[in-house]
């Protein structure tokens, strides 16, 4: 069993236009996860008209007058607060390992 928060978990992403949901491990570009009729080409769903236009051949760019395609997304964050951080535990185990394996000869 893997405890929540001890293994990578995907982000839930939802198109604000149609509600289509997707899950992604791409935490840097979560908007790319959703592909739907609102935004048929995967991209960051950001307001950068330049990058948008590359994907949509000049047809898109949220925030740009006349935009007909792009829709923003909702990104659902999760967090697990606990007494001991997994990374700290692993670090502590690593520090203890050489001592626990040390053999003392008589």
């Amino acid at each position: 069993m893997t405890l929540p928060g001890f293994a990578p978990e995907p982000l839930r992403v939802s198109c604000l236009g149609c509600g289509t949901e997707a899950w992604t491990y791409d935490y840097q570009h979560p908007g790319r996860a959703v592909e739907c009729g609102c935004c048929p080409a995967p991209h960051d769903h950001d307001a950068n008209a330049a990058s948008c236009s590359l994907e949509h051949e000049g047809d898109c760019g949220k925030g740009v007058p006349g935009c007909r395609v792009c829709r923003p997304v909702a990104i659902f964050g999760t967090a697990h607060l606990r007494m001991f951080d997994p990374a700290e535990l692993l670090e502590a185990l690593g520090e203890d390992a050489p001592q626990s394996l040390e053999v003392t000869e008589a």
Binding site: G5, P8, E9, P10, L11, L16, Y25, Y27, Q28, H29, P30, G31, D44, H45, D46, A47, N48, K62, G63, P72, V73, A74, I75, G77, T78, A79, H80
Partner: peptide
């Protein structure tokens, strides 16, 4: 946050 850092672009929620 799980998976941090998480990027939220302009206009996104």
């Amino acid at each position: 946050w799980t998976g941090q850092p998480i990027s939220i672009a302009n206009g996104n929620v």
